[in-house]
């Protein structure tokens, strides 16, 4: 299937600052793609260029195969949910959701029916007469979503849609958004800085940094095989080692085994000294110093079950090991 949208060598400069640096990216049809990265990585700028709010300095953006680089937002037919929700404060919930439909010159009855259906979909049918100000953050978020979905957008763009919600609601809304995406079959592009959100929700994950794409893949691919140190670091790999052959690799803290693991399958075995421990109830974070294969002293972080680490105190000498499957070679 041809992609829903494509970035071809797209660059965005603001003065001397290059926000997005010659990216190439295909957004697959009917899937949920996340643009993930720390603030300033260019993810929001990319989304805004796709939506038409910002024109690329160079490069081409295609939507459904058509060059849309200079098309104004109102001609793109995309739905966007803003981080601030950007609801129309002077209109009711139903008028907010119906705004785009009215512009499409639909008869009034059709608009009303569409609005009701969409509010039903996001679970807000009972609030259609309220003004946005009276709603909770979570409800406002759903109105913003309904408003964007109501026009049956060719793409649904979500700019950090969950970041203003409290922790519990945020986790609920991830499932909710996935349900809505599945029910509507919409192509979704979601911008987030939260790797858990991206891992849980994406079909395709795009990791960005400094305006460049670092890695693209399914959550499983990216999580288990980070392409470079930045991606590994961002996804919570804490331990970076070099061996005799100068191969650079990384291990997650929960995959480091402390003490004797002498079944011979370990791809890594180093002598280490405990520097400090942090008790966290279920688990225990152990900071260690070790000398890696290249002869460098490295600081390691192991995440072990609290019971297993009972005897560890600063100064304790132990060994750390990791299974071959958990030792991930990466680009330095």
């Amino acid at each position: 299937m041809s992609p829903a949208a494509e970035f071809i060598g797209v660059t965005q400069r603001f003065g001397d600052f290059t926000a997005v640096d010659a990216i190439d990216l295909e957004i697959p049809e009917g899937k949920l793609t996340t643009l993930l990265g720390p603030s300033g990585c260019g993810k929001t700028t990319s989304l805004r260029m796709l939506a038409g709010y910002s024109r690329p300095t160079s490069g081409t953006i295609r939507i459904h195969g058509v060059d849309s680089t200079t098309l104004p937002p109102e001609k793109r037919g995309l739905g966007m949910v803003f981080q601030s929700y950007a609801l129309f404060p002077h209109l009711t919930v139903a008028e907010n959701v119906g705004y785009g439909l009215k512009l499409r010159k639909l008869p009034r009855a059709a608009v009303q029916q569409k609005v009701e259906e969409t509010l039903e979909l996001v679970g807000l049918a009972h609030l259609h007469k309220s003004k946005p100000k009276k709603l909770s953050g979570g409800q406002q978020q759903r109105v913003a979503l309904a408003r964007a979905i109501a026009i049956r957008p060719r793409l649904l763009l979500l700019d950090e849609p969950l970041s203003n919600l409290d922790a519990r609601l945020r986790v609920q809304m991830r499932t909710e958004l996935r349900r809505i995406q599945a029910e509507t079959g919409l192509t979704v592009v979601l911008v987030t800085h939260d790797q858990d959100e991206a891992l849980e929700m994406s079909d395709l994950m795009v990791l960005m940094r400094g305006g460049k794409i670092m890695q693209t893949g399914t959550p499983r691919e990216v999580f288990s095989r980070p392409a470079n140190r930045f991606v590994a670091d961002f996804l919570g790999y804490e331990n970076f080692l070099t061996d005799q052959t100068h191969t650079f690799s990384t291990v997650r803290p929960e995959h480091l085994i402390l003490g004797a693991a002498s079944d011979g399958s370990a791809a890594l075995r180093l002598d280490a000294t405990v520097v400090s421990t942090a008790y966290r109830g279920v688990d225990l974070l152990v900071t260690l110093d070790a000398v890696d294969g290249a002869g460098e002293t490295v600081r390691l972080l192991a995440d072990v079950r609290a019971g297993d680490g009972a005897g560890l105190t600063p100064g304790t000498r132990t060994t750390v090991s990791a299974a071959a499957a958990h030792l991930v070679p990466i680009a330095a």
Partner: peptide
């Protein structure tokens, strides 16, 4: 963003 939202909706 409110005005942008209106633009995006058509």
């Amino acid at each position: 963003a409110v005005e942008e939202a209106a633009r995006g909706l058509g």
